[in-house]
Write a protein that binds this DNA or RNA. Structure first.
Lengths: 240, 240
DNA sequence: GTTTAATGTGTTTCAGGTACATATTTGTAT
DNA sequence: ATACAAATATGTACCTGAAACACATTAAAC
């Protein structure tokens, strides 16, 4: 990856391999934007406007601009579509099958992010955007079902080790709520006592000394994410 | 990722965003090809022929051809450079900073592979290709140091859980050799007894009922990778 | 044959995870 | 007011896997 490109730039006319031969692959980014509502993990989808995929939904994506970093493109999409900046985004995998886009050769890099579906700053402007429960998703446009699966797989792998999950929840939450999110992501039931023990052993939570309100049962304590951790997360993941 | 490209294809003349604006990002693949020799993990590097990086080494990579899958490109590079087909390759991460390539906008997807440095089919033809011990590598061209690190990180994460390591070794190997490879990758010393116990609990190995020869000490038993596992690996990782 | 250096096989200990039970607090219905 | 239902909150016993550690055995080298 250095000799060829030189030739491409300098001898485009004389070489068999011309500039356009190589520079005709488009690069896009697709975001798996996940939220949590009604004890379900949901993903933000948009109706595909390609004839080939009429009636199907697709992930939120866009072509990468020549003057923006790959990562930046994913933040831009998230910002444009949700109005949110302060959100964790992680690159997962790049999909580059020849025939994956009907209009031409497009390779795409998949990112996932978790956000609070009820965040006050959240602006889902377009009415063709919708939150879909992940276990009720059928066919998607392009190879987006594969992309979704790979992101969910990554999420499930990491969610127990790293404090990712809190972006899905409001600022204040109870341990029951937290557990329900884990159960929605992992697709399993967890033992309440063991779950609490495990969480309390990590330094992820801060007891707010407040109680739930307006719940039809005994209210539980409220917690928030450890602010020190929040800072560290920002630094590590370069959240804008 | 669907509306924009439609416009790009259909209304290139009338839209502000022209075809060439988007189709001027080149896509490349870089391979971190790892081998094992003299109790060291080594990576296959090539002298960079870019003036900007004169004197520096770089990973083996190439532009992706418009008519080949992204994954296929990585296999092609491996084949062209080593003569080997039957090798495990895994996509790790895509690097897309604007300024990462001095000659233009190029995003690159990193793959790593492990192979037996003394394999009889191995053909390192070009004399500007060299195996470098990974802990003696200084600056590399482009962002290839970052790419190398991310691949090594992935390798270290997975090597204890998945039977990847065997591609680094000859067909027949002793438990000591196997342990030495693990130690080279992880950069730590392992307890011999615990290591053997751990390995024997997995179904990775088959006892060949043969002994080492020409070793200056008591010879150890020889093992090979469980053939059933080999088949499974081929299926999973689509090794050509 | 004695020494040396590696192979080959336990046992003990400790930490983390899983399974499981009981007391407490609040809301709700009577 | 009282009884009941439902969820919170906390503790213990058991099991599994990892880590620390010791000794007998085999073959090469002298």
């Amino acid at each position: 990856m250095s000799d060829k490109i030189i030739k491409t730039f300098k001898n485009a006319e004389t070489e068999k391999i011309s500039h356009l031969d190589y520079f005709n692959i488009a690069v896009s980014v697709d975001c798996v934007i996940l939220g949590y509502e009604d004890k379900q993990l949901k993903v933000l989808l948009i109706k595909s406007d390609l004839e080939e995929f009429s009636g199907l939904n697709s992930l939120l994506g866009d072509l990468v601009r020549p003057d923006e970093d790959l990562d930046e493109a994913s933040y831009r999409i998230l910002r444009e579509r949700t109005g949110l900046n302060d959100v964790y985004l992680e690159q997962v995998q790049t999909f580059g099958r020849i025939g994956r886009h009907p209009s031409g050769r497009v390779i795409t890099t998949a990112y996932f992010s978790l956000l609070d579906l009820h965040h006050h700053q959240l602006r889902i402007n377009q009415n063709d955007l919708h939150w879909h429960p992940i276990h009720k998703i059928g066919k998607l446009a392009f190879d987006h079902k594969d992309i979704l699966e790979s992101c969910l797989h990554r999420l499930r792998q990491q969610v127990l080790e790293r404090p990712l999950i809190f972006s899905l929840l409001p600022e204040k939450f109870s341990l029951r709520q937290l557990q329900e999110v884990y159960e929605a992501i992992l697709g399993t039931e967890l033992d309440r006592r063991n779950f609490r023990k495990k969480v309390s052993l990590k330094d992820w939570l801060v007891d707010l000394n407040e109680m739930e309100e307006d719940v039809p049962h005994r209210p539980g304590k409220l917690y928030k994410l450890n602010p020190a951790l929040k800072k560290r997360l920002r630094a590590i993941f370069k959240v804008v």
